[in-house]
Amino acid sequence: MSIQSDIEQKLATGVNALHLEVVNESNNHNVPPGSESHFKVTLVSDDFEGKTLINRHRMINTLLAEEVSGKIHALALHTYTSQEWAKNTNGAPLSPPCLGGGKG
């Protein structure tokens, strides 16, 4: 199974997601074609209600502990409650460009 589908599955089972988008952004980076190194997650869930951003990210980092501790290089996280998502008409922000400091 691909890392991308692992991420999707772990998030879908770990969180009551109203919207979940996992994008493989590896082709923007200095890695071989077909790599699964850089991902961006947009997750809308009312499980985030009343939680600070750091606690929302900690929830996701825990669910994806195996991935973030070595399988992947970068994970951009954009978390919203349904109310925040309704106000956000632009979608999640764009990820930054690669600057080549590939270590780790």
Binding site: L53, I54, S69, G104
Partner: peptide
Amino acid sequence: WPTFPQIYINGELIGGCDI
């Protein structure tokens, strides 16, 4: 906290880039 960068304000982790 598994990733970089990490930003600390007043001795406390506030998070990474997205936060």
